[in-house]
Design a binder for these strands. Structure first.
Length: 676
DNA sequence: AGCACGCCGACT
DNA sequence: GTCGGCGTGCTC
């Protein structure tokens, strides 16, 4: 496999292995090979070693084995190929996500340590043979390992049995916090996932646990350390330096079961005897890969599960419509939580309290009183939509929104005494003048986390105020009374759970324009509510209707089912898949025609094309919607069109001799934002 | 990408 | 009759 970005080189090439390289030339190792003419080298990976080449011409010789460590295992290669095929992308792009950059020092240390271990094992084997001792114990195939903690909150052994059967599961997380055996507090979901991984480890198998961000990862790691030895955990995440990441990656290649945790790219980690892939909160957009070919970790997990035969679990408080679809198909099994501790959710319409602060923050009196009461005994969580002080500024005289004089972007205030600055370019609006009425003074609109904190501080003078937002986010707070103001997604875990949770900016959060607003809001709110102590009030302000009813009854699965039904009616994802086709008008028209040619007969109803509409640079854009059943044909057809356009690109007349136009056809599958 | 091959216009 | 322009296509 060549490390090339060119779609026309995204296939296997055969090379002859010279005698001197034969010992190291095994599948998975990094190599350098000649391509096209002498002296030009490309790097790549050996995928297969065979006695007879498929290629009929004369073979070039392998130039160099860069390192003897087989970093691209056959399983991961097969996964990369399937993922690329599904999204009409390059396998080498996927491999780049799967295999971190090589770090020579780290790799040498790994090789040396491994050689030493192998030597020690050989000596031990000799001693064992001489002494005729018992053979080393292997994992008990019958399943139940002694001393493990049961996975609580679900039916007896329901999850254990499912893991043993290697089932695919949608698990409704338990909406509260739990204390680990080491005394630390984490979301119950983390405890559940840790117990699942520990059980799988007891079966002698590895787990891959995928979380959206490092705050979730920290909780999961805390929970895991209470179940297993630290040496059984391997981490792969964006916070690590390159050497750290490579060291942990290499440790996954060892032939012993591990628990591998990290963000979305960890789904590609090599794993010894993979027994479980589990995703926390698969609806979080951080599971969507922003690099080509843009395949989300949910889809990668589904492909990997099919190839490895491992168990698969989607764990969340509110089920994504994608997983709902899989449940309705019968492909994934529903594991409901034991409804013993449902959260105490109270929706409140905007019946504003008489208190001065409550009025300015539009907090209803009942919520205000609940917060005041809860503060006597423990921490209270206040969820707001935005960070900063005043997220929006307007002209004080004409009330029109204020804009940056440099780039015309919107203005905001970061903290109380900081001058207004531009959201986009950061310029400080010094000599600002309104473009509508020549006014020169601002009016602050809305409350960001900092302004909410300041005003709450005034209302509760003796209370500790803690702010957790995008710029400064906390992972946990103590059980002492405090007001914790957090932007959605940045809520810290409180020891013992919050004594009250207030969700303030519901209306504003719902005002965002997106196909998935309702689903996203439900997820943000459910996740915050799940941080409450048992029976503590969770008050949601200014949200009514189906969403409020869903939270009160804690029936997110039914909401997901309704949501999916709506998408079916509209023929929107995930009821169907989508692909964007972008390029010159001729290239797009050609690709669309080929699609109609290859999806024909009774299948033709399974595909429809929206557009083309004009895009930037004389390009046009079409959106193809298609049923999952024709996904392979659609991907293969569009892939062929991309390759053809890359191979024979026409020169534009009247341009400089060496001018190369951009690729005249680009394809992107399953972009969740295109129909917003 | 980047290089070789080939087909057509201008030249000793 | 050949030299070299650049468009077209291939890379094991």
């Amino acid at each position: 496999m060549l490390e090339s970005l060119l779609p026309q080189l995204d296939r296997l090439f055969d090379y002859r292995i010279p005698e001197r390289l034969a010992p190291d030339a095994r599948p998975g190792v990094r190599v350098k090979v000649p391509l096209r003419s002498a002296g030009r080298m490309t790097s790549g990976y050996i995928v297969e070693v065979t006695a007879h080449a498929d290629f009929s011409g004369t073979l070039s010789e392998l130039e160099e084995v860069v390192s003897a460590v087989p970093v691209l295992t056959p399983e991961v290669w097969a996964l990369a190929r399937s993922v690329a095929d599904r999204a009409a992308g390059n396998a080498s792009d996927v491999v780049r996500l799967a295999v971190p950059p090589r770090q020579v020092r780290v790799e040498k240390a790994f090789v040396a340590r491994r050689a030493k271990a192998a030597e020690a094992a050989a000596t031990a084997a000799v001693v064992a043979a001489a002494g005729n001792t018992e053979s080393p114990e292997s994992a008990d195939p019958s399943g139940d390992t002694p001393n493990r903690t049961p996975i609580a909150g679900y039916g007896d052994n329901v999850i254990e049995t499912a893991l043993y059967r290697r089932a695919r599961l949608s698990i409704t997380a338990i909406p509260t916090v739990r204390q680990t055996s080491a005394g630390e507090w984490v979301g119950a979901w983390a405890e559940t996932m840790a117990a699942m991984a520990a059980f799988t480890l007891g079966l002698g198998r590895s787990s891959i646990l995928v979380v959206p961000d490092y705050r979730d990862q920290d909780q999961l790691e805390t929970a895991l350390r209470a179940h297993v030895d630290d040496a059984d955990i391997a981490r792969l995440d964006a916070r690590q330096t390159n050497p750290e990441r490579y060291a942990h990656f290499l440790s996954c290649l060892e032939e012993r079961p591990r628990i591998i945790i990290g963000n979305r790219s960890v789904v590609y980690a090599p794993a010894f005897e993979l027994g479980l892939i589990a995703l926390w909160d698969d609806g979080d957009p951080l599971h969507d890969e922003p690099l080509s070919p843009y395949v989300s970790s949910r889809d990668v997990a589904l492909i990997r599960q099919a190839q490895s035969g491992s168990a698969l679990a989607f764990v969340s408080h509110s089920r994504s419509s994608e997983v709902q679809r899989l449940v309705e198909l019968g492909f994934v099994d529903d594991v409901p939580q034991n409804p013993k501790f449902l959260p105490n959710v109270i929706p409140t319409s905007a019946q504003v309290s008489g208190d001065a602060f409550a009025q300015s923050a539009r907090i209803p009196s009942s919520a205000w009183m609940a917060a005041r009461k809860a503060l006597e005994t423990g921490p209270v969580l206040i969820q707001v939509a935005r960070p900063g002080y005043a997220p929006v500024l307007a002209c004080a005289s004409c009330t029109n929104p204020a804009h940056c004089l440099v780039c015309d972007g919107p203005l905001r205030t970061q903290s109380k005494n900081s001058p207004p600055s531009c959201v986009l370019c950061g310029a400080i609006a010094a000599q600002w003048q309104c473009r509508h009425c020549e006014g020169t003074t601002f009016r602050l609109i809305g409350q960001g986390s900092a302004r909410t904190a300041e005003e709450l501080g005034r209302a509760f003078p003796a209370t500790r105020i803690i702010v957790s937002d995008g710029t400064r986010s906390l992972t946990d707070v103590s059980e002492a009374p405090a007001l914790v103001i957090a932007t959605r997604g940045a809520e810290p875990v409180a020891a013992g759970g919050y004594h009250a949770v207030l969700l303030l900016d519901g209306e504003r959060m719902l005002a965002r324009e997106s196909l998935t607003v309702a689903e996203d809001c439900l997820r943000w709110w459910s996740n915050a509510i799940a941080l409450a102590a048992p029976r503590a009030p969770a008050i949601i302000v200014g949200v009514g209707g189906e969403l409020a009813r869903t939270l009160v009854t804690w029936q997110q699965n039914r909401f997901a089912s309704d949501e999916l039904a709506d998408r079916r009616r509209l023929r929107f994802p995930p009821a169907v898949r989508v692909a964007t086709v972008k390029g010159t008008p001729e290239a797009v028209a050609g690709a669309v025609k080929e699609l109609h040619d290859s999806v024909h007969g009774e299948d033709s109803a399974k595909i429809d094309v929206l557009g083309p509409v004009p895009d930037e640079d004389d390009f046009v854009r079409s959106i193809v919607r298609f049923d999952y059943s024709v996904g392979q044909v659609v991907a293969a057809t569009l892939r062929a069109a991309v390759i053809r356009n890359a191979t024979s690109r026409r020169k534009i007349p009247g341009r400089p001799a060496n001018f190369r136009p951009p690729p005249s056809l680009r394809v992107r599958f399953d972009d969740t934002e295109i129909l917003d």
